[in-house]
């Protein structure tokens, strides 16, 4: 180990790990958004509590700092839900509660064909986008050495929160032209959103696209409707000089050969995926994951520790929860996970 390794800040460590460069140990991170760690045990005791922190930039930033402090995750991440994008595009949300994330109450459009063209630039002053930008700016200026991750909802998940999802999934086959048009508009919006977040100070852009799983779409539609749009966002972020994480839920094995086409620096996957194997197949992609959130909620801390150590032995680049954490997850169990990774050399 070189001297530089020992002196790595969490920001440097994560950025190096994302680029598959040598690090002293993997970082332990949590990408935010649909996979945020604002459990009730933390948010309930924080002056920036939920659901308030979804709606105020300063509170959003304060809660992100509190989450990192309490959990030991080596990054800051905002926002704490996956409804920011669809809300800005016109869908109606329920603000949620302390224990329950905001959610889409009704999609703005019944079908893809109903989605009108929009002026992307005007969107960034509407709904909660300015709140997220403010939070990112505050976190970047907070004087910590923790990297700031902005978490955005992927194109297919955003489209399926903007258009009634059953219609949208059918239109992927029955009305490809309109489905592609919506995906294009949504992707242009998300790309610009990601660019602006990087300019406000985000170190990393994470994209969570739970609806774009091969389990739902199958490999053919995943290749046609998920890959090119995710890649466009990744390229936009790369143009801004920042790395990306793309998280896809569920059993992605069927689509694994398509992963490199997305061009993301890191892929984050669900608990059922064998990350060691993924790493062997694609050594150039940073592997992130994948401690079962079921285990984090119900499992004993010792089992979580064993699992974290196993992932480190397997050469996983970034240790992280496999999917969205339950808000009733106990802090002590999360702490067991982060301590296991951080104290590896002790």
């Amino acid at each position: 180990m070189t001297v530089q390794d020992v002196n790595l800040t969490p920001r440097q460590r994560l950025l190096k790990a994302l680029r598959c460069q040598h690090v002293d140990r993997p970082p332990v991170a949590c990408m935010g958004g649909m996979m945020n760690a604002a459990i009730t045990e933390i948010a309930g005791d924080c002056s920036a509590t939920l659901p308030d922190a979804h709606f105020h930039g300063a509170k959003m930033a304060d809660l992100a700092l509190a989450v990192a402090r309490a959990t030991g995750f080596e990054n800051l991440a905002v926002p704490f839900c996956m409804t920011v994008e669809a809300e800005a595009l016109g869908s109606v949300i329920d603000p949620g509660t302390l224990a329950c994330e905001p959610k889409i109450v009704s999609e703005a459009y019944a079908s893809a064909a109903d989605v009108p063209p929009w002026d992307t630039e005007k969107l960034f002053t509407s709904a909660r986008l300015p709140i997220v930008f403010e939070a990112v700016e505050r976190l970047a200026g907070a004087g910590t050495d923790l990297p700031v991750i902005v978490s955005i909802t992927g194109p297919l998940s955003t489209s399926a929160s903007l258009v009634e999802p059953r219609s949208f999934f059918k239109e992927l086959r029955k009305n490809k032209k309109e489905a592609h048009r919506v995906q294009r508009q949504v992707t242009d919006f998300l790309s610009q959103y990601a660019r602006l977040a990087v300019r406000k100070g985000a170190d990393v852009v994470a994209v969570g696209d739970p609806s774009a799983t091969g389990e739902i779409l199958g490999p053919a539609l995943f290749e046609e409707f998920a890959v090119p749009y995710l890649r466009d966002i990744v390229r936009a972020v790369h143009e801004e000089g920042a790395p990306t994480i793309v998280h896809i839920c569920g059993d992605t094995e069927r689509c694994r050969d398509l992963w490199p086409l997305i061009e993301s620096d890191a892929v984050s996957v669900d608990a059922m995926i064998n990350l060691a194997r993924l790493k062997r197949s694609f050594p150039q992609i940073a592997a992130m994951g994948n401690i079962s959130t079921f285990l984090l909620e119900f499992g004993p801390p010792e089992k979580v520790v064993r699992r974290a150590r196993k992932l480190m032995d397997d050469g996983v680049d970034i240790i992280a929860p496999a999917c969205g954490l339950s808000t009733s997850t106990r802090l002590a169990v999360i702490r067991a996970m982060t301590d296991a990774v951080r104290n590896e050399h002790l």
Partner: peptide
């Protein structure tokens, strides 16, 4: 059998 996925099943149901 992984021949059909969600979109296909929804359209077949229609």
């Amino acid at each position: 059998e992984d021949e059909y996925f969600v979109p296909e099943l929804l359209i077949a149901a229609d």
